[in-house]
Structure formats: structure tokens, C-alpha cells
Computed example of a mutant assay.
Amino acid sequence: MNPISGLLFFVLIGAGALILGMGTAFGGLRLPLGGLLVVLGGLAPLALLMIDQWERVVVLRLGRFQGAKGPGLFWIIPFIDRVAVRIDQRIQTIAFGAEKALTKDTVPVDVDAVIFWQVHDPERAALEIADYRVAIAQVAQTSLRESIGSTPLTSLLSERKKVDEKLREEIGRKTAEWGVAVISVEIRDVAIPLSLQDAMSRQAQAEREREARVILGAAEKQVAQQFLEAADTYSKNPAALQLRAMNIIYETTKERGATILIPTAMVDAMNPGGVLGLVNSANPSSTPGAAPGPWGKTS
């Protein structure tokens, strides 16, 4: 009994009882009028119904569909009309799963998922199927197993969004006939056997090691190429070689308290003339007819 029909019940019953108890005030209409008010008061809770904003009720009149009523207050004819079912039109969820389902590459997995759905046609939800909640859960579980069986394990793990969308379309196509719209389907967890987890972990580690070695080899190749280019530059420009030698000595001696022993040959190498002599001795063809001396001078 809703508050409005309850209030109407007490008002009509009270008015009828008052008229019946007033003696000859209404004359011959006392009994009929008072009795009518009492009867109407007793029927008020059955005739005046109130439905919340998110609900709809399916009303049958003598067994035939009369309409989907609500929200708010509405009247029905007692004993002729009846409310067959109340339907909640808010978004609802059902958790479902598949245990020991085989993927396309015959890997057993346990999958947990959740479906978000909403009744958009109360008439069809009430008349087309006996229990749409149970039917949605069964269809969702069956569709999940079918999707797992047609999907490899790697795709099931890495392309979960695509699997979710495929499930939503498949389940929505089946439930549309019942007036139910599937908003989304989300896979929450995919559990695989422990032995397979260990094998996949070793495979991933091997892949990472292979990539690391490839990157290291590429880096060494780049370094070797840079060394070759530097050697070519030094061979063509002795001044660059001298500056590099001076930079090496500076970098070595810039720390305080360090004592560096430098061979005389290295000191002589700092002399531009010595550097040129070393370069010329390495390339005798650069000075035709001249034999290089021991100190870089022609004899």
C-alpha cells in the first residue's frame, strides 16, 4: 500500500463510518452512501498504484496485455486488471564466467566477466520470455565459451578490448528480441594453468634477452663505425690528433692528488713537428723521393 492509497483508504472508510453513524441525517441515503464509501475505501489500495521513476509495470486486463504503466500514480480496475510483473529499467549487472574452457589453440583457461544490460522494452521483456534475468546469464555464459573457443590464447590476453566488443555484439543480438539492450561486456580475469604460466615466463625472458643482445650488437657496430670515422679524421688532420692527445692527458690529470707518469715519446708527440713526422712516416708516399728520418725530418 502506497501512502496516497493508504490516505484515501482511511479517508473513505472514516467518511463512510461517519455517515453510517449519523442516524437520520442523510435519510434513506445513509446506508447506501455510507456503504459505498466504505467499499471504495477498501478498494482504494487495489485500484490506486504508485510506481517509482525507474520502474514500469505490465498490466493485464482479463489476461490480455493492457499496457506498461508508470512512473507515478495510475488507476486499475480491481479484480479485472492485475499487475503481471514489475520491471526495473535501470542499468544492471550480472557476473558470469567459463571454467576450463579451451581456447582455439587448446589451452584450458578460466575466464571471469561481467555484463551491463538494461531493459528498454518492458512489454517484450514481460511477454516474450519467462525470466529474462536467467536467460541473459545463460546466453552470456554460452557466448563467452564460444568466443574463447574461436580465439587464440595470445589474442585473449593481449586483445581483450576486441573480445569484449565481440561478446557485446553477440549477446546483444540474442537479447534484443527480449527487449533487453546490452551496454557492455568486460572480461575481468583470465586464469591459465601454472605450468603454462612458467613456460610463458621463460619464453618472455628469452625474448627480452634476444632483444637485448640485438640492441647491444647494433650499439657495438655503431661504436666501431664511429671509431673508423675518427681514425680517418685523425689520419687526415694531425692537429686533431694532437688536440685529442692533449685532451686525454687533461682528462687524466684533472683529478686532484693524482700523479701521472708520461713517457717522453708522448711528450714529443705533443710537438706539431713530431706529429707531422709520425704521419709522414706512416705515409711515405706523401713525399716522393724522400726517406723519412728518425725524428720526422728528411735526410
Score class of each variant (00 low, 15 high):
2 N>L: 02
6 G>Q: 09
8 L>F: 05
9 F>M: 14
12 L>H: 03
14 G>L: 04
20 L>K: 07
20 L>R: 05
21 G>Q: 09
24 T>A: 07
25 A>W: 11
32 P>A: 05
35 G>C: 10
37 L>M: 13
38 V>L: 15
38 V>M: 14
39 V>E: 02
41 G>L: 03
42 G>P: 01
42 G>M: 07
45 P>V: 01
46 L>S: 06
48 L>W: 08
51 I>L: 11
53 Q>V: 15
53 Q>F: 13
53 Q>P: 06
54 W>N: 12
60 L>P: 12
60 L>T: 13
63 G>C: 04
64 R>F: 07
65 F>I: 11
66 Q>T: 01
69 K>P: 04
70 G>A: 06
70 G>S: 04
72 G>C: 09
73 L>E: 10
77 I>A: 11
77 I>G: 00
78 P>N: 09
79 F>H: 10
80 I>T: 12
82 R>K: 11
84 A>T: 08
87 I>M: 14
91 I>F: 08
94 I>S: 13
97 G>A: 14
100 K>H: 15
101 A>C: 12
102 L>Y: 09
102 L>G: 06
104 K>Y: 12
104 K>E: 10
108 P>N: 13
112 D>W: 11
116 F>Y: 10
119 V>T: 01
119 V>M: 03
120 H>C: 13
123 E>C: 05
123 E>A: 15
126 A>I: 02
126 A>W: 01
127 L>W: 14
129 I>E: 08
133 R>N: 14
137 A>I: 03
138 Q>R: 14
138 Q>S: 15
139 V>A: 15
140 A>W: 01
149 G>R: 10
150 S>T: 10
151 T>C: 05
153 L>C: 03
153 L>T: 02
156 L>Y: 05
158 S>E: 12
161 K>G: 03
163 V>N: 01
163 V>K: 02
163 V>S: 06
164 D>T: 04
166 K>P: 00
166 K>R: 11
167 L>S: 03
167 L>Q: 00
174 K>D: 13
175 T>Q: 05
176 A>C: 11
176 A>V: 15
176 A>E: 14
178 W>I: 04
179 G>F: 08
179 G>Q: 07
179 G>E: 05
183 I>F: 03
184 S>P: 02
187 I>H: 00
187 I>T: 06
188 R>L: 13
189 D>H: 09
193 P>R: 04
193 P>G: 09
195 S>Q: 04
196 L>Q: 14
199 A>I: 06
200 M>W: 01
200 M>K: 02
204 A>F: 00
204 A>S: 03
205 Q>D: 13
205 Q>W: 07
207 E>R: 03
213 R>F: 10
214 V>K: 02
218 A>E: 15
219 A>S: 04
223 V>Y: 00
228 L>K: 14
228 L>N: 08
228 L>T: 07
229 E>F: 04
231 A>K: 13
232 D>A: 10
236 K>H: 12
238 P>L: 08
239 A>Y: 09
239 A>F: 10
243 L>D: 14
243 L>F: 14
245 A>Q: 02
247 N>M: 03
248 I>N: 12
254 K>R: 14
256 R>K: 13
256 R>G: 07
257 G>R: 11
258 A>H: 06
259 T>Q: 12
260 I>V: 15
261 L>C: 08
262 I>P: 06
272 P>W: 13
276 L>W: 08
278 L>R: 02
283 N>R: 15
284 P>E: 02
286 S>E: 11
286 S>R: 08
291 A>K: 08
292 P>N: 10
296 G>R: 10
